[in-house]
Nucleic acid binder design. Sequence first.
DNA 1: AAGGCCACTTACAATCGCTGTAAGGTTTTT
DNA 2: AAAAACCTTACAGCGATTGTAAGTGGCCTT
Lengths: 224, 224
Amino acid sequence: MSTIVIVEDDNYLREELKHTFAREGYRAVGISSFEEPEKEILENKPDLIVLDVNLPGKSGFELCKWLKARVAVPILILTARETLTDELYALGLGADDFLTKPCHPKRLAARAKRLLEMYKNVRNLVHAGDVMMDVDTCRVIWGKKYITLPETEGKILRLLMERYPALAGKEEIMDALWGGAAYVDENILQVNMARLRKNLDSIGLKRMVKTVRGSGYCLEVTEL
Amino acid sequence: MSTIVIVEDDNYLREELKHTFAREGYRAVGISSFEEPEKEILENKPDLIVLDVNLPGKSGFELCKWLKARVAVPILILTARETLTDELYALGLGADDFLTKPCHPKRLAARAKRLLEMYKNVRNLVHAGDVMMDVDTCRVIWGKKYITLPETEGKILRLLMERYPALAGKEEIMDALWGGAAYVDENILQVNMARLRKNLDSIGLKRMVKTVRGSGYCLEVTEL
DNA sequence: AAGGCCACTTACAATCGCTGTAAGGTTTTT
DNA sequence: AAAAACCTTACAGCGATTGTAAGTGGCCTT
């Protein structure tokens, strides 16, 4: 069952939206806190986010931009102001659809359904800056170049990307990949790091994996 | 450069649309024959299709359905009739957006751009009925199950899917895979067919590849 | 400046999946 | 029943992947 997260400060409208989506068979979750909505949104593992523009704290536009930079989830913007500039702005930020209130529930539901269907076929991507990786296939894409990594290296890079721009500890990686350092050679990480670096080099991503002496590794992506 | 194919019978509007998109840096192609537009549309390798509803021959709706069943290209429906039923119907058929004429060029361009961006991250899929295959990775998806095929089998299945529901000739497959039967063992096809069948079996797709004695193979998908 | 720690590099071998070949069996057609 | 078409199984070569091993180089502390 798909989860739809609704970010709307008007209580009445929020409940109505929840009902609309619940009736269509979705798990509809409303966001209640608007101080730091990002966290609550992501915790609910949304398959679709319905976003109001006028919010108490951060605007819907800002939220949209922030979310799109991190997760590959469709975002539907819902607003009371029907202006072309707003729509162009929203679409430019990466919003997937832009509807104006009042919106017929059936239209809303149909648009939402369409987005969910589309995103089912979207690659499961993680990214750090402009570098993306398809989690399922370990294909790293950077501009027009790409390379498919072996599974082990893919797992490592995924971890690094998920932590980006922070670092991933050695322990953490060892745990995630080999269940701790108990039964494998201790330099296994270094070897695989070298392999990963070599592969990234081959598509021009030199110096992307940085060593943090004594603790672990992190990514450093030069923005285009 | 992305190609946008415009299917619109009104000459004046078609040229205008072509201009709009050309100005944005796309290759804009107009369709002129409406007897069998499918062929002309596909020949142009569209990255996006803009579809009018009222056409001389087949309706835009029919075209949309037909196209969506074959290729993974975004379709934007453009119509003069602004009715909710039409919109719901179009979205239900798999249309990705639905705009009404007259439509501001900037809005149209922004929506088109969004769709193109979205579909960049969409897996390159071919399908036969409910069975899909990611062309890049040879991953076959059926409902919740999937399997990744080896390259050779993937190529064969792709060919079969592209021909579906028609058949693919033995010669044709031999040519596509091994450049004819000259330098390979003659039963190579049979062996790989067996392997393919076995792999498809493993996710429940039994009896999907049918032998057509004397000519080739074809797919037979039991619709869900 | 020297020793020790940490990280890197290179080489190697085991394993596994993919692929084409070969040989023999089964089904269908005439 | 014989021939043609198709299927099945086994096998071996090849390449990619992965962990191990051993040696090298750089950085930090004393």
